[in-house]
């Protein structure tokens, strides 16, 4: 019997299962990342997506394999869902040459040409002009790829955001602006940084269609993204989608998380994206507890394999320091 309190899933069971599986994959992967950080296997900045999984999963499931993705430094989830090998992602975080960026990028700079993942960009707002350019190239070449660019609500205060929104709308470019609004930019709450906290109102001033989705509900994020992608692919110009979400963990592993109420965090946790979907599926009879546990076990197995791959990975010789600086190799050395 379905619970009248719960929204219907509204998707065929295999599709809903695929969404659930990807959210669990990200969760398990990142929990392990946090452990590995504690063990100092992973160093540098590490930004976890835990709590926000429904955004990347819903959004990326609405895109095709030919589409372009531009993401931020909080992009492990995007890379995993996009199909980048978990081993290559983990090896990248270890700094091994088997990493998806040959160990030169780390957690914040996952790249994968095969799946058209154009980074992992750690300049807040830096990916937006890039995405506009990818879309311009597509328009000029008469192709049908859509470019999806992800950025936090913090980026909305950057000039790059406004310049990119204007250019994309002015030239009717095929780009979906995916704003992952988790209400904080490091320790700065949105009310303390935006004169207008209604981000869709802000985006609409660029003469662009806007959508707002519950970012804790993967069915909603996917539906909004499907809408946006359909409009963009039809040639009607860019769309701005605001996904309202929340990060359960600190901004990065360096963040003592002193700027928000524990009660607020707990409140958002009651809306967890994984349970949100699994509860609804169970209520509708498309998921059993055993099936859920099997998905979880499989995700853990995938992470184990990724860690084993990263552990077995090798260090690039330092003599290669200047490799890949220029396409045409030069006598120029790194020193």
């Amino acid at each position: 019997m379905s619970d009248p309190q719960l929204k219907p899933v509204g998707l065929p069971a295999p599709e809903a299962l695929a969404l659930l599986r990807d959210m669990v994959r990200i969760r398990r992967f990142e929990e392990r990342c946090a452990d590995l950080y504690g063990q100092q296997k992973i160093r540098g900045f590490l930004h976890l997506y835990i709590g926000e999984e429904a955004v990347a999963v819903g959004a990326l499931h609405a895109l095709g394999p030919g589409d372009n993705i531009v993401a931020t430094y909080r992009e492990h989830g995007h890379a995993l869902v996009r199909g980048v090998s978990p081993g290559a992602i983990m090896a990248e975080m270890y700094g091994k040459q088997e990493g998806c960026s040959r160990g030169r990028g780390g957690s914040m700079h996952l790249f994968d040409a095969k799946t058209r993942l154009f980074g992992g960009n750690a300049i807040v707002g830096g990916g937006l002009p890039l995405a506009v350019g990818l879309a311009l190239a597509e328009q000029m070449q008469g192709g049908s790829r859509v470019t999806a660019v992800f950025f936090g609500e913090g980026a909305v205060a950057e000039g790059a955001f406004h310049e990119s929104m204007n250019l994309a709308a002015l030239w009717k470019l095929p780009v979906v602006f995916c704003c992952e609004n988790n209400f904080y930019a490091m320790g700065t709450a949105i009310e303390r940084s935006e004169s207008q906290t209604d981000l869709c109102a802000k985006a609409a001033s660029y003469n662009m269609k806007t959508l707002r989705a519950d970012g804790m509900d993967v069915i909603a994020t996917q539906a909004a993204m499907r809408d946006a992608v359909a409009q963009v692919r039809s040639g009607a110009g860019p769309v701005f989608v605001e996904f309202q979400t929340y990060r359960y963990r600190a901004h990065s592993m360096f963040d003592p998380d002193l700027y928000r109420d524990k009660a607020e965090v707990e409140r958002w946790k009651t809306r967890g994206p994984i349970h949100n979907l699994s509860n609804r599926m169970k209520a509708e009879g498309s998921l059993t507890e055993e099936a859920f546990l099997a998905i979880d076990a499989e995700a853990i197995k995938e992470v184990d394999a990724a860690v084993a791959f990263a552990e077995a990975g090798t260090w690039e010789p330092v003599e290669h320091l200047a490799h890949h600086l220029y396409t045409v190799n030069r006598a120029e050395t790194a020193r």
Partner: peptide
Amino acid sequence: ERIRDAPLSELGFVGTAIGAALGGMRP
């Protein structure tokens, strides 16, 4: 299209050119 006037957005249109280069053009 090919002699493209851009608005006063140096960061935006230079970044756009970089993206277009990644996307297969020669801006």
